[in-house]
Design a protein around this nucleic acid. Structure first.
Lengths: 159, 159
DNA sequence: CTTCCGTTCATACTAAAGGGTGATTTTGGT
DNA sequence: ACCAAAATCACCCTTTAGTATGAACGGAAG
């Protein structure tokens, strides 16, 4: 985090210096060779090349890497473990006496969604989700959503 | 790396053509408007801008989408045998480049612990845990701890 | 011996989560 | 039709999480 910022700063400074030097160089070249009208093409070409390179450099250094991670699940046969990934532990589930909506909320919760996102997903208000999750915490005897997910998984009621 | 060079070659041709066309255009503009010697600086500035833009465009085109695919081996039942525990997906784990402490925090996180509890557990301050978890979120490209746990589990780096 | 990285911690702030209470509206079952 | 449970939402308030920024320190590598 800090290092990234420092890198950015360093690049910005380097860019500033490089730009200044380049402009200076261009000005100098202008006075030195512009008498030769024939050198005009080369001059312009050089400018084009240099600034194209500068653009490339800028883009690569300042643009975000934008790494997209695609998760592909590959099923492998392994001794033990439940088939197809998950079977609900009905006994534990019944004991909790979660309502439909509460269970639904719990499942979104386990997928790492925020209350607001769940609310949008289920077309209800944020307050409603809060109420549901509070009830879930009571019924499951936990204090936090992360704990809820962990316990729910251990009980076998969520994958 | 190899794909990058291949891409570069393909785009290099396009770039060459584009460059030729642009130079031609510049030449034309030169004959048309260069009678005004005062416009020289503006002319050069325009060239610089255009080619900087071209460079940036090139860079964005050259940059590979960089879609990292993580293949997760998911366990599936097979007759007999002991209950398979957890095996860390080393490939996915290495890709994240989490530090020791960060991984440690992630594990407590997955157990549903609050930052304060993790801080007590690891004998450091709450702020330290916050820093660690922020770094984890950056490296794992997530926004919340619940999301972190879910993704971490999908990647196979936590049980 | 610098330079980089990881670890530690702080302060200040914003955002999200959670607790408590009360209220209205569906809805399913007798 | 009536009742209880579920579902919905609101307000207020506290706590926890998360962001941003900066800084100090020690170890490892060049």
């Amino acid at each position: 985090m800090t290092s990234k910022f420092l890198l950015f700063n360093r690049h910005a400074i380097l860019y500033g210096i490089a730009l200044a030097l380049l402009l200076f160089l261009l000005k100098w070249l202008e006075y030195k060779y512009m008498v030769l009208t024939h050198a005009q093409d080369i001059y312009i070409g050089a400018i084009a090349l240099v600034f194209t390179g500068l653009g490339i450099w800028l883009a690569t250094k300042l643009a975000k890497p934008k790494v997209e991670t695609v998760i592909i699940e590959k099923e492998v046969l392994v001794p033990g473990a439940p088939p197809g990934g998950f079977v609900l532990n009905q006994k534990a589930f019944d004991k909790l006496e979660l309502s439909n909506r509460e269970f639904e909320v719990l499942q979104w919760m386990a997928k790492g969604m925020s209350n607001q996102e769940i609310a949008d997903q289920m077309f209800v208000s944020l307050n409603t989700i809060k109420t549901h999750s509070s009830n879930i915490f009571l019924k499951m005897d936990v204090k936090r959503r992360t704990q809820t997910v962990d316990k729910g998984r251990q009980l076998g009621i969520i994958p």
